[in-house]
């Protein structure tokens, strides 16, 4: 089991140019990041290309990680999600992965072996539970699957402007519920 502290050390060594440390960091984290990218891009080849870019970025930006600002996994996951969403936003809609495969990803419920976040998770869960079902689904599709406003508008049969309003309302409600 690799601890958060181990990962931080590996990242720090990577920032100093240590490729072996970076390789260990990769092996400890790549399945998690790949899971993120694959779920958003839903195409294995594209996701592997994206994953390469993501780790090049992690290497290049390793010196920027600030432990006080976020957990290392959140930091890396953010890089991965941002990259995947940038890609998915720019491409034309297409279906690549077959539905069963997608279903398998969506329905399984296992996790980052992340420790410190249990209470944050409960809090967000609780607050998500306070949203109307449609709104909750919308937030989840956007965050987890990388859906755009337009895709959400199609699914919920609403104008894009309405989706934007709903999203903002839901996000404000979440913020208020989380107390910050």
């Amino acid at each position: 089991m690799t601890t958060t502290r181990d990962l931080e050390n590996l990242l720090r060594q990577s920032a100093e140019g240590d490729m072996d440390a970076f390789e260990r960091l990769y092996h400890a984290t790549s399945a998690k990041l790949f899971g993120i990218v694959l779920r958003i891009l839903k195409n294995r080849a594209q996701s592997e290309d994206a994953l390469q870019d993501i780790y090049v970025r992690v290497w290049q930006n390793a010196g920027d990680f600030e432990p006080g600002r976020s957990s290392i996994i959140t930091w890396m996951a953010t890089i991965a999600r941002n990259r995947a969403i940038d890609i998915v936003r720019r491409r034309k809609p297409e279906t690549d992965m077959d539905d069963r495969e997608v279903e398998a990803l969506v329905s399984s419920n296992n996790i980052f072996d992340e420790v410190a976040l249990a209470s944050d998770m409960r809090a967000l869960d609780h607050c998500m539970g306070g949203l109307e079902e449609d709104r909750r689904k919308m937030i989840r599709l956007a965050y987890l699957e990388g859906w755009s406003r337009a895709e959400l508008a199609d699914l919920f049969a609403q104008p894009v402007g309405t989706i934007k309003t709903w999203l903002h309302r839901s996000l404000r409600q979440l913020k208020e519920c989380l107390g910050s």
């Binding site: 790949f34 899971g35 976020s70 996951a77 953010t78 996790i111 976040l117």
Partner: peptide, 16 residues
Amino acid sequence: EKRLSPLNSEYVAVPP
């Protein structure tokens, strides 16, 4: 990022 990051726990690890 901090508020929404707990959702990251729902991503399933898939080995590349």
